[in-house]
Amino acid sequence: MQIVREQDVVPFRNRVKEFATKIGMSLVNQTKLITAASELVRNMLKYANGGKILLEIISKNAQTGVRLTFIDEGPGITDIKQAMQDGFSTGKSLGLGLPGAKRLVNEFDLKSKPGEGTTVTVTHWKNGR
């Protein structure tokens, strides 16, 4: 799914919700996943002027989950460790986006190269806590 404008965010959230409902994720877990997705989409729009998002349903070890991959070709993140800290932000925000999103999902993976872009993969299991 392509995200280029702010208005794309709401349909994207609905798509995530669709996926999460399809595998029978509980409301709380759905909300966590969508909130995390929302944070990451905002980052993508703000720092990289949009990008691509891949939605998939995966299963591993008798568990089902939703995996979202956010790919952008923005400026990238120079200091990932710093970016993952609570309260750090290069924009004027709370600095909860990345670390908060990480706390909300079961698996979180961030790859970034300055100048080339950032890829964030998050996975949330159906009954993941």
Partner: peptide, 14 residues
Amino acid sequence: MQPAVAITLVELGL
């Protein structure tokens, strides 16, 4: 506020 929203906000650190 919905319970799910409250839980999510707390996890988020907000």
